[in-house]
Simulated scan of single mutants.
Amino acid sequence: MIVPQSYQIQINEHYYSVPYLYIGKRVDVYTSNDYIIVKYEGKEICRHLRTDGEGRTVVDSHKPEAHQNIDRKTASTIQLMMCLKSVKVWMTAYIVTAYQKSNSIRITIDQKKLPSVRA
Rank of each mutant, 00 (worst) to 15 (best):
T57E: 11
K43F: 02
H67W: 00
S104R: 11
K88M: 13
K88F: 08
A66L: 10
Y35L: 08
Y22W: 03
N103F: 04
I37E: 14
Y20A: 08
V59M: 09
I105N: 09
E54K: 14
S6L: 09
P115N: 04
R118V: 12
W90A: 08
S116W: 05
P115Q: 08
T74Q: 14
Y40N: 14
L21R: 06
I107N: 02
M82R: 15
G24I: 00
V59L: 13
Y16F: 15
I36C: 06
N12E: 15
R47M: 02
E13M: 06
S104Q: 14
Y35H: 04
R106I: 11
K43P: 00
S32Y: 06
I95E: 03
S32P: 02
S76V: 03
Q111F: 05
E41L: 10
Y22A: 01
R72T: 11
M81E: 13
K43Y: 02
G24R: 00
V18R: 00
Q10K: 15
T77V: 07
T57W: 04
T57K: 01
T92I: 07
S86G: 11
T77W: 06
P19W: 01
Y15A: 06
S86M: 07
K88W: 04
T74D: 07
D71G: 09
M81G: 05
V29L: 00
S86R: 14
H62D: 15
D52A: 07
I70F: 13
H48S: 02
Y22P: 01
Y30Q: 11
H14N: 14
Y22Q: 02
Y20S: 11
W90E: 06
M1I: 09
T92C: 06
Y22G: 01
M82C: 01
D60K: 10
C46K: 03
T108R: 10
T108N: 13
Y15P: 02
A75K: 13
S6C: 06
I2T: 10
Q79K: 15
S32T: 15
T74E: 12
H14K: 15
L84A: 04
M91Q: 07
P4E: 02
E44D: 04
H62T: 04
S116M: 07
Q10G: 02
Q79H: 10
E65L: 12
N103R: 10
V87E: 04
Q5T: 11
Q8N: 15
N69V: 09
V96Q: 13
Q5L: 12
I70S: 05
T74P: 00
S76D: 15
M82E: 06
K85S: 13
K63E: 01
V18L: 00
S32N: 05
P115A: 07
I70N: 04
C83H: 03
N33R: 07
Q79D: 14
I107Y: 04
S76M: 14
M1G: 11
V89C: 05
N33Y: 04
V96S: 09
T108V: 12
C83W: 01
D110W: 06
I2W: 05
A119F: 07
I78L: 05
N12Q: 13
S32W: 06
H14D: 03
K39P: 01
I78N: 04
N103E: 13
L21D: 12
M91T: 10
N69T: 08
G42A: 06
Q5R: 12
I95Y: 02
Y15C: 08
